[in-house]
């Protein structure tokens, strides 16, 4: 097992931790944190593949991660705004209790 394997395994582990958190916790903010962890695991894969890839001068992996970080920032802003808005409405941030479409 060489070092590219170890980076990929680490990122798979990180992804699973994020997934487990997003699936098991009830608080919407923690679910969002879990999603962010999964996104970061994917970013790590891009960087590892870029570093071990045959053509690092093309910067493809780096560019992908930069754009992905920008999108993650936008996603976090909108997601947290939604959570705050849900909290105002239902007085809870529990994903289990927010289960009706009626406004």
């Amino acid at each position: 097992m060489n070092s590219l394997h170890q980076y990929l395994l680490f990122s798979a582990l990180l992804f699973s931790v994020g997934l487990a958190g997003a699936l098991t916790r009830r608080n919407a903010i923690l679910v969002l944190i879990g999603v962010e962890l999964m996104l970061n695991a994917a970013n790590l894969n891009f960087i590892a593949f870029w570093r071990y890839g045959p053509n690092p001068e093309a910067l493809t992996g780096i560019m992908f991660v930069i754009f992905s970080i920008a999108i993650a920032a936008a996603e976090a802003a909108v997601g947290l705004a939604l959570i705050i808005s849900i909290y105002r409405h239902y007085k809870t941030t529990n994903v289990d209790e927010v289960n009706e479409l009626k406004g």
Binding site: A12, F15, S16, A20, L23, T24, R26
Partner: peptide, 16 residues
């Protein structure tokens, strides 16, 4: 924890 926490954990384990 959510009601289906065991399923969630199992799914995450299976993914890994």
């Amino acid at each position: 924890l959510a009601q289906s926490w065991l399923t969630g954990l199992l799914v995450a384990g299976a993914v890994f």
